[in-house]
Nucleic acid binder design. Structure first.
Lengths: 160, 160
DNA sequence: GTTTTTATGTCAGCCATGTTGACTTATATA
DNA sequence: TATATAAGTCAACATGGCTGACATAAAAAC
């Protein structure tokens, strides 16, 4: 009886393979966010704060709309966490230069520091996983995740 | 000038590569959960209900403690959603046979139906991503996600 | 130059889902 | 018989989504 589980087999998309892919994503995301969540709790912050800090740190000078587009939440939800971050000195808002209605976002020095501490855990975790899996596996990981993402962002992220 | 970005290069763990890995995981999870979330909202349910239904469907007859161990939430949080699912006829609880303190969980026919409809989207999305990425990429995707997961579950899931 | 649209912020209230802490019940085990 | 375990419950609280309504300033259209 032929081995129907070899990687070259076109039937690799059967139910079990998909179920496994779904579960691995659940477990990985669960463990990936657990430690930063615990650190954030000490500041009275939550995961939403981490996301805002992360993307502002990644895109200094980004507009509020751009951040909303990434997070896919309402501006009311965003402003709750963004307001806290501004009031507590982690994020700065400055009027845009060509469009003065815009509020350009950037991390303060304190914000940069918090972002680094928060993501350190995730970077270390991912670095270990990458190292143990090897470069080819990393390419596959990226290719599949890219395929999961909706078309619009997939194109934007494709050559990242 | 040599291409320092080839997949064989040992420097592939630099900052940018890790950042990309983090962001792909964020975007993929965001889009992976968006459609089931919308369906659940029509039932007055949320993502927590989906997780409970999914894992009970996957492990018929599982105990409450086993489910708690997977979801990593408190029993109070779980019981809120589990109670709703039982009251509304999606999940059944039966006393265990060898240990009658246990409540063994399983989906009703209605529950099986809901689970299938909820996960259909995710299975289709993942199937497309798998198909387009190819079997080698799928293996890499699984290997890296497995590496992200904490040791305890990693061993349990390794030969899944 | 006036009107309209856009970018952003804000107030109020609702819901889902996580938390802690205290307590109960039934059953298994020592 | 005493203790430990599996599960459920009540109460209160926080985070972070949501909707809807409204305000302000600046850009863009007319």
């Amino acid at each position: 009886m032929a081995d129907i589980k070899t990687s070259a087999n076109p039937l690799f998309l059967r139910e079990d393979e998909l179920r496994r892919g779904i579960e691995l994503l659940f477990y990985a995301y669960r463990d990936f966010t657990a430690e930063p969540d615990a650190m954030l709790a000490n500041h009275g912050f939550g995961r939403a704060h981490h996301r805002a800090i992360y993307f502002v740190g990644r895109n200094p000078g980004m507009t509020v709309s751009a951040l909303l587009g990434i997070l896919r939440i309402t501006k009311q939800s965003l402003n709750r966490v963004l307001g806290q971050l501004v009031r507590e000195g982690f994020v700065e808002r400055h009027a845009g230069v060509d469009d003065r209605r815009q509020r350009l976002l950037r991390l303060t020095a304190t914000g940069v520091d918090l972002e680094r501490r928060l993501s350190e855990n995730q970077r270390a975790r991912l670095a270990r996983a990458y190292r143990e899996a090897g470069a080819d596996a990393v390419a596959g990981y990226q290719r599949v995740l890219l395929g999961i993402i909706n078309e619009g962002d997939r194109e934007k992220l494709a050559n990242g």
